[in-house]
């Protein structure tokens, strides 16, 4: 293990490490702690300029009730779910199929198709913006949840396919060969043999894509205009304009918007990190 395990070092180093750890953590998360505290401050605290001290009053219930009653944040949150959940299901589903094709069959165009998916995954969003907006308008899906879902699904499929293909490639190929010898059709092989083994990959991708799509802001600006389909990221921006100088309410809104991906991360931490660090150990 590198660096030297702290247990094997001198008592002074050890003590220093154990003290510095919480200090570093608090400093690192200071901006977030401040937001968390501010989200329960009273308007009086805000007006008095008490932004960084301890709150004089704890207005937890009041502030969080206020943002739900005086702003459409409930609607924004609901929209975010309506955009994110179908996207996760569709992009993971499509990439299971595509990843299976690229991971198990040898055909001429295989690597080419694979690299098209990878390359597309890295392009700047701006090069897609005008045509995608135009297409969405023509389909009559501008300013709708469906319009966003379709784009996100297509775009995330690139990353998902890269991930799935590498995962399937690492599975024991003999399993598939044996099934073919037994006369199983290609679809049966996919359904009965490969798909059950893909569970960890599916879980990892699901949490990652959930976070990516939930946190999207750019496409919400491009494909949505009003409140009816606006996700919570774009909604926060309008909230910021609505509650000028009411930082306790903006903070409460930020916390609410950040909560679902944070919860997702904590619940599925192992899968999340496995997905994110794909390629960090080999390749």
């Amino acid at each position: 293990m590198f660096p030297t395990p702290i247990a094997k070092t001198g008592p002074l180093t050890r003590r220093f490490y154990m003290i510095s750890l919480p200090v570093a953590l608090i400093l690192w998360l200071l901006p977030l702690i401040a937001v968390l505290l501010t989200s329960v401050r009273s308007a009086g605290d805000i007006n008095a300029g008490n932004y960084w001290g301890w709150p004089t009053q704890w207005n937890l219930v009041e502030n969080y009730t206020a943002i739900f009653t005086s702003s459409p944040i409930g609607q924004y949150l609901f929209n975010s779910f309506k955009i994110t959940v179908p996207t996760v299901i569709a992009s993971v589903g499509l990439s299971c199929l595509a990843g299976f094709a690229l991971g198990t069959y040898r055909f001429k165009a295989n690597l080419f198709v694979f690299f098209v998916f990878i390359a597309g995954n890295f392009v700047p969003f701006q090069i897609l913006m005008v045509p995608v907006r135009d297409l969405t308008l023509k389909l009559g899906l501008y300013d709708t949840v469906t319009g966003l879902v379709l784009f996100h699904t297509a775009f995330q499929t690139g990353f998902c396919t890269l991930f799935m293909r590498n995962f399937i490639k690492a599975l024991p190929f003999e399993l598939i060969e044996a099934a073919r010898v037994d006369g199983a059709s290609e679809f049966v092989i996919f359904r009965r043999i490969v798909l059950p083994l893909m569970r960890p990959a599916i879980a990892a991708l699901a949490v990652l894509i959930f976070t990516f799509v939930w946190n999207d802001y750019f496409w919400a600006q491009v494909l949505v205009q009003g409140d009816s389909a606006m996700p919570v990221t774009g909604g926060l921006k309008s909230l910021n304009g609505l509650y000028v100088a009411s930082w306790h309410l903006v903070s409460a809104g930020s916390i609410v918007a950040a909560l679902p991906p944070v919860a997702m991360f904590f619940l599925m931490q192992k899968h999340f990190i496995a997905g994110l660090t794909l390629g960090a150990t080999k390749g």
Binding site: F100, G120, V123, L128, L150, A154, F155, T157
Partner: peptide, 24 residues
């Protein structure tokens, strides 16, 4: 079979990512 498995993902990706690059 591989092309059938690939088709849905490829169509989506072509329509929303690859073609738009050239259109832009």
């Amino acid at each position: 079979a591989p092309w059938l498995f690939l088709a849905p993902a490829m169509i989506m990706f072509l329509v929303y990512v690859i073609f738009p690059i050239f259109q832009s």
